[in-house]
Structure formats: C-alpha cells, structure tokens
C-alpha cells in the first residue's frame, strides 16, 4: 500500500472513531435529560395579575370575609390527630406532640424523595405509612373524609412556612418525569398541561381564566365551589384529565406524585395556605 493509501485509511479510521464517539455522547446526553422545549407565557406576570383580579378578585375577597367551609374539616382533622387507633395504641399526637408541635414546617418539604421506597412521598402517603408502620392502623382511603381532614390538619401546621421542595440528587429523575408528563399531549383534545397553564395562562377559555402554574400547589386541600366540597390537588388533576377527555389516573399513583413534585417545585418560596378556597 502506498504512503498516500495508508494516510487515507488512517484518516477514515480516525473520522469513524470520532463520529462513533460523538454519536454515543449524543445518545448518553439524550438519555440523561429528555429535551423539552419549555414554553414562555404569552401574557406578562403583571397583566396576568390584573386579569386574575378582574375575574376572581371580588369573589375571593367576599370568601375571605365569610370564612372557608373547609375550616370544619380542619377541626375534625385536629380531633383525628389525637385519636388513638391501631394495635400499637397510639395516635399521631403520641409521637408528634399534642398540637403537632414537631410537625411545624414539615409539610413545606413535601413531596420529597424517600430512600426506603425509592420513590416520591406526599404528605398523604406519609400519613398512611405512619399509620401502618408505627400505629398498626389501617391506611385511610384516599380522598375519604378522614384522610382529607388529617392531611389538611397536618399541612395547616406549616401554614405561612415557605414551600421548600428539593429536586436535587435522587429526586431529579422524578421531577423530570413530572415535567415530561406536564408537557406531553393528552386525551382526545390533545392538550398538554403546559399549553394551558404556561403558554396561554391568563387567556380566557370561555368564561374561565386559564391559571398560571406558579400558584397551583400551595393551597391544597381546598374547598372548591364546583365540587361543593373539599378535595386534594390530585382530585383536581383527575378533573383536568377528564376535561381533556383522558382517562383519569388513580390517587397517589407514581405519575400523579411526580406531577405533584413538579408543580410544588414551581411554588417554591410561596407560603403554604390551607385550606384554600377555589371557584
């Protein structure tokens, strides 16, 4: 083989090796973080606030004056907190203090990664795990009155505490999964959560204002006039799923917990305010 031929072969081999390397690097980068093109809201934050006040302003003021119907549920939650249940003869108060002193601020860090289950833990899930592991009591059925009442009371102990959810380390993939779900198109209408609540937030969809996701996770459980009752954020997820004609998912399933982590992270820094009051 001539010298030129050898040089050519070497060049081809070097080029092949380089492209293969770049290809593998590109694949690895792809697996690490799926590329999601995030939306920017069409409407500025100031304009959004103006529109929000125009649609809901005076109603929320009236509600604040007249009180929140979910306050009754909160009182029942407080009673349940010190009710002895299960084989260990304990109540929540046995470990967490008569007025839940030891839980003040605890809810601000939820949802959070739990090394024991290698998954995301919500307050609702944590309460049921405590009941099973430490009280020897049966878990409460999600979205039942007692479950919501206890969840509401435990969260109310952190009222006013800024939300501080971590997505570092092992929580990161769950956050990314929640974000992927948020940006994926769903249902017969082919909407994604982000289309309405990021890109078009502040626009009107018939007589409804499309709300901005910054405030979606800081006030649940909430009393909602449409339900004429109190429900959780995940009940609201199910409602949204139905609105886009998609089959709703079960309470506290992995997807909803990831989604809750993603949304709560958007509310980082805002104070917890439960029970909320929604239209």
């Amino acid at each position: 083989m001539s010298r030129l031929g050898r040089v050519l072969v070497m060049l081809v081999c070097a080029f092949g090796a380089l492209t293969a390397g770049a290809w593998r690097y590109a694949l690895a980068a792809d697996e690490a973080a799926p590329q999601i093109k995030e939306y920017k809201p069409n409407i500025s934050a100031r304009e959004y606030e103006k529109r929000y006040n125009a649609v809901y302003g005076k109603y929320t003021e009236q509600m604040a004056e007249e009180g929140n119907p979910a306050d009754f549920m909160l009182d029942d939650g407080k009673d349940l907190f010190s009710k002895v249940e299960g084989s260990a003869g304990k109540s929540c108060a046995s470990c967490h203090g008569a007025n839940g002193e030891k839980l003040k601020g605890a809810a601000a860090g939820f949802p959070k990664y739990d090394p024991a289950t290698k998954g995301i833990n919500t307050v609702a899930l944590q309460i049921n795990r405590c009941r099973e592991d430490h009280m020897g009591a049966a878990p409460l059925k999600y979205e039942s009155y007692d479950q919501l009442a206890l969840d509401l009371y435990v969260k109310s102990l952190s009222n006013g505490v800024p939300i501080k959810v971590s997505i570092d380390g092992p929580a990161r993939p769950f956050y990314e999964a929640g974000k992927a779900y948020y940006y994926k198109r769903h249902g017969q209408f082919n909407f994604s959560c982000a289309l309405c609540h990021v890109k078009y937030s502040g626009h009107m969809m018939r007589a409804n204002l499309l709300s901005n996701n910054r405030h979606h996770a800081d006030h649940w459980p909430s009393y909602r006039l449409k339900w004429a009752g109190t429900g959780s954020l995940q009940r609201r997820f199910r409602g949204c799923n139905k609105n886009v004609r998609q089959k709703p998912l079960p309470f506290e399933c992995e997807t909803y917990r990831d989604l809750q982590l993603y949304l709560t992270y958007q509310a980082n820094g805002l104070p917890i305010q439960v029970p909320g009051f929604k239209m």
Binding site: Y200, H203, M204, M205, R206, A207, L210
Partner: peptide, 13 residues
Amino acid sequence: CHVVPGMEFPGDV
C-alpha cells in the same frame, strides 16, 4: 377559544 357571532363569554385563545 374563539369569538363566535352571537355567543357570550367567548375565549381569547
């Protein structure tokens, strides 16, 4: 989402 003649409370998407 659209303004439609004769319909109240139209969207502005």
